[in-house]
């Protein structure tokens, strides 16, 4: 805080109160006795759905939280768009595209493209195997977004490997979120409970039909139901969300 000279005292007062706050935080955290709680039940029942407990919690037990999380990202992406003129009141303002064009060296140009493909493949593997191995939609999506950023840095926004325009990124993001929302609606329609994991059949008494179960079965040892599909939706959303933020902030005009 830069107060005027006469108010230098304020820094001291604020520091004292922050000190009091810090003391209580440290005190609370240093004598902390942890209880497993419902995590134990999640670990006990979770393997019936899919091997990776964290994915099971994210997309099944607490799948609704993940929906909220996805929408935070969407909100942030739209807000960043608003900041740079898309959708402000009184008509859109399109700023000059001032993407810095920096000549890449030959080594960068030669090696970036294959690296991008490898990274994308890695991201896809992480996404599709999210319920078996460590990983999932968020991680896979952000790995693919890294590849996008690499290609933008090396080849420029116009000529990047992905060839995605701003509009198609927006559409992709919307599609990703709609996949999530609609898979939740399937559960609502069939069983009466939103985001019911159709296909995993944890609760057979709900009487969800055979067809739905077969529709959402996924070729692996356990039957994860809709979790892999939710993963794909989230991956699309995170990928396009991060890419949009990157392009918007990257293209901000320098003054």
């Amino acid at each position: 805080m830069k107060f005027q000279q006469s108010q230098e005292m304020r820094n001291l007062i604020a520091a004292i109160f922050v000190g009091i706050f810090s003391y209580f935080i440290i005190k609370a955290l240093t004598d902390f006795d942890i209880v497993p709680g419902v995590s134990y039940i999640y670990n006990l029942r979770g393997p019936l759905i899919a091997p990776n407990m964290i994915t099971v919690i994210l997309f099944d037990w607490r799948g609704y939280d993940t929906l909220g999380e996805a929408f935070i990202l969407i909100t942030a992406v739209l807000t960043t768009g608003i900041l740079f003129g898309r959708g402000v009141l009184g008509g859109d303002v399109s700023e000059k595209d001032s993407t810095p064009i920096r000549p890449s060296t030959i080594v960068q140009k030669v090696f970036a493209a294959p690296l991008v493909f490898i990274i994308v493949a890695f991201g896809v593997v992480i996404t599709l195997g999210g319920h078996i191995t460590p990983g999932g939609g968020f991680q896979g999506g952000s790995v693919i977004a890294t590849a996008f950023f690499l290609s933008v840095v090396v080849y420029g926004f116009k000529k990047n490997v992905f060839n995605l325009s701003h509009n198609s990124l927006e559409t992709l993001e919307g599609v990703g979120a709609l996949i999530y929302l609609c898979l939740g609606l399937v559960g609502l329609g069939l069983s009466g409970y939103y985001l019911y994991n159709v296909g995993a059949d944890l609760y057979p008494y709900l009487g969800v039909g055979d067809t739905a179960t077969r529709l959402f079965s996924y070729p692996d040892s356990t039957n994860a139901g809709i979790i892999p599909y939710l993963n794909i939706g989230i991956a699309l959303k995170v990928l396009s969300g991060f890419c949009t933020i990157i392009t918007v902030l990257w293209g901000a005009e320098k003054k």
């Binding site: 964290i54 994210l58 939280d65 996805a70």
Partner: peptide
């Protein structure tokens, strides 16, 4: 196994 619920919450907070 470790307690898995907090890990899922962390993932949410990272995105936030």
């Amino acid at each position: 196994a470790s307690y898995s619920l907090p890990f899922a919450l962390v993932l949410t907070n990272i995105v936030i």
